[in-house]
Each structure stands twice: as structure tokens, then as C-alpha cells.
Design a protein around this nucleic acid. Structure first.
Length: 318
RNA sequence: CGCGGGAUGGAGAAGUGGUCAACUCGCUCGGCUCAUAACCAAGAGAACGGUGGUUCGAGUCCACCUCCCGCAA
């Protein structure tokens, strides 16, 4: 089989998915249609619609775009069938009903930004960093009934440096995910539709804990200063820059305020009984006490203000 | 009409009707010092987002506008 003969339908929404879609298009694969989320209202007054990044890219390359509201909608399913896909590739999309993933003869595989079975769920990159992992990766697997549980085709690992935030890992995994997706398709083509897979149950080492990666909400992003400084640090970078973490800090004058924290730095300076969450201002640095050591703040954002460096923020305290 | 918060010297930020503007940082100049991102001294720099209104008088009250930020999506 030649790759031109393999009809692919791509499914995905955000920029992360564009990485793979782009690799397929530029790699000469036959992407016959793209499925993405409907346009969503954006902006502060609710009238402007924004197209998903995947849609924008697809339109620029004259690929038909489908934006179903309901994946089980008959009209949508009929249209999807009309593209006669041999294979569906899913990246950062949503849960699919069996009627969709079972449609192509070679099946549907997903590119997930973690080393499954670890970090199953919507926010694998964030959670891996929050938990202080030094390694994560991407996995391609065939979809089945549950979220991120299918048989694994390929896996590639990726280092997470100590200072890395979500942006860094996101970019790295987008690239790695794209390569892995292409290689996965290569294998499927070489095998004329059949590839070797490994069930995830066989990949779970006895005694290891499985970390989930559920969707993140505002409440999830609240900083707990009573944790050790390393955990707070990982938490902050695991949510930076999107969606951003926030915490309540106690200012030198005793008042309390909410503060978003984007970048911080570890220190080994002991807290010395200062109450966790207390902000400490020095000439050239700002710290917040955690349970064991001080965390240095680098980039913060007070309510209603723009993001600023911590020194500037401290200059305004009086 | 989705909800809410803002707009003051280069940066942060006080100040809610009557010394046209505090403070922190930065900047310039001088000093101290082997030296310094440290310290001391002096100085420059703001008609307070825009327009109109209320008032004897507005950064400070009202209206509209512009822009920014958070939530929600």
C-alpha cells in the first residue's frame, strides 16, 4: 500500500493537534477530512466566535472540515462515512462513541501526551509536571470504550527538566507527537493495516501507582502554601502559563490578597516558623513561605492587573 | 446587551472635592570604597486614558468613549 492510498480523517481541536495534522499534510498523507469542535464564543462580550486552530489550518489547506455538536448525530455520521476513511487519527479531541472510532477498517488511533497507562485524561502534561515527573512522553494507541485505555502501538519518552513549564513540554510533545503519529501510520501501512499492539494491562508494573490526569478547573489551580517548596514549585510550573496558578498571600502589612503566580524559583532558605503563605519582600527579591523553605516569586499577576515581574509588584506594596 | 476589576512620572503604586500629586524601583550627577548589583547625598521626570458635564473648585462626583485584565466559553 502506498501512503497516498490510505484515506485519513483527522480529529482534533487545539494547537497541540495542529502539530500532527501539519506533519501528515506536509508528509504527503492523504487527509481527506478534519473533524473538530464547533466554533466557540470568545472575548469579553460573548459575540465573537473563534475557530479551533485545527479548523484554521485545515481551511488554509483546503481540507473539508466537520464540526459536529453531537458525535452521535446521524447527519454527521453519514457525512463522516462518506469520506470512506481507512484510518482515523485523533489528537486532543473529545471522547468518541464506538460508532465513530470503529468506522474505519484500520481503526482509529489517538496521540496522547503521556506515557500510558500513566496520566490518562484531559490534562496529562499539566499533571506530569505538577507531580514532579522528570520524564513523560507520547503514546499512540487504538481507541476503545474507555478514556485512554486502548492497545498501545508506539511510545516515545521525553525529558522534563527541573525548570520546565507547561509551554516547554507542550511544544516538545507536540513535535514528538507529530513524529510518532507519522511513524505509527508508517507501521500501519507497512503492515497493510495490521500492527503489533500491547494491551496496557501488561504495561503496568506491579506496585506502581497510576496517576490520573483529569481536566483542570479554577479550583484545581489554587496554590497550597503549606506544602513543601518543591511541591509548590512543581505545582506552579505545571500550570504555567495556562491556565495559571493562584494563591492567597499575606502581605507584610497583614492584609491578604489573591495573586496569580506564573514563574517562581526554588530556594533552600528555611522558613523559620513564618506562617505559610506569608510574603516576604527584600531589596532584590520576593518570597513566599512554604512549609519548609521560601519560594522566590518571579512573575506574578494581581487581580485586574497585567502580568508583571515580582519586583515590580513588590515596589507597589506600601 | 454574559459577570467583574482596572487606566496616576520609565516600572509598580498611594491619593475618593480644596498645599496640581506620597512611596518603592529605575534613571542622571556627586561621594564613599580595592571594588560593588552595597551604602550616603543631590536631581530630572506626571497637567493624573479621552470627551463632555456637575461644582466657587475634580486625579478625586456623573455620562459616554477608547484600551487593558480576570471569570465564563
Amino acid at each position: 500500500m502506498r501512503k497516498e492510498d490510505l484515506r485519513i480523517v483527522f480529529m482534533g481541536t487545539p494547537e497541540f493537534a495542529v502539530g500532527t495534522l501539519k506533519a501528515l499534510v506536509e508528509g504527503g498523507y492523504n487527509v481527506v477530512a478534519v473533524v473538530t469542535q464547533p466554533d466557540k464564543p470568545v472575548g469579553r462580550h460573548g459575540s465573537v466566535l473563534r475557530s479551533p486552530e485545527v479548523k484554521v489550518y485545515a481551511q488554509e489547506h483546503d481540507i473539508p472540515v466537520l464540526q459536529p455538536v453531537k458525535m452521535k448525530d446521524e447527519e454527521f455520521l453519514a457525512e463522516l462515512r462518506s469520506y470512506k476513511a481507512d484510518l482515523q487519527v485523533v489528537v486532543a479531541f473529545r471522547m468518541l462513541p464506538e460508532v465513530v472510532w470503529a468506522m474505519p477498517k484500520y481503526g482509529t488511533f489517538n496521540v496522547h501526551a503521556a506515557l500510558l497507562p500513566q496520566y490518562r485524561g484531559a490534562a496529562p502534561i499539566n499533571w506530569a509536571i505538577i507531580n514532579g515527573e522528570t520524564r513523560t512522553g507520547v503514546t499512540t494507541f487504538f481507541l476503545d470504550h474507555d478514556i485512554d485505555t486502548g492497545r498501545v502501538i508506539m511510545q516515545r519518552s521525553f525529558e522534563i527538566p527541573l525548570e520546565a513549564d507547561v509551554e516547554y513540554v507542550y511544544d516538545g510533545l507536540m513535535e514528538l507527537g507529530a513524529q510518532t503519529a507519522v511513524e505509527t501510520i508508517e507501521r500501519i501501512i507497512e503492515g497493510e493495516g495490521s500492527v503489533e499492539t500491547l494491551p496496557q494491562e501488561e504495561m503496568i508494573e506491579v506496585g506502581t501507582e497510576l496517576h490520573p490526569a483529569p481536566k483542570i478547573f479554577k479550583d484545581t489551580c489554587k496554590i497550597d502554601w503549606t506544602q513543601p517548596v518543591k511541591r509548590v514549585y512543581d505545582f506552579i510550573r505545571g500550570l504555567c502559563p495556562i491556565p495559571g496558578s493562584w494563591g492567597e498571600v499575606v502581605l507584610p502589612d497583614g492584609t491578604q490578597m489573591e495573586l496569580k503566580v506564573y514563574q517562581s524559583a526554588l530556594t533552600e532558605r528555611p522558613t523559620n516558623d513564618i506562617v505559610a503563605g506569608t510574603l516576604i519582600k527584600e531589596k532584590k527579591a520576593v518570597f513566599v513561605a512554604c512549609s519548609d523553605c521560601l519560594l522566590e516569586l518571579k512573575t506574578v499577576q494581581p487581580n485586574g492587573k497585567k502580568r508583571m515581574d515580582a519586583i515590580s509588584f513588590a515596589n507597589g506594596l506600601h
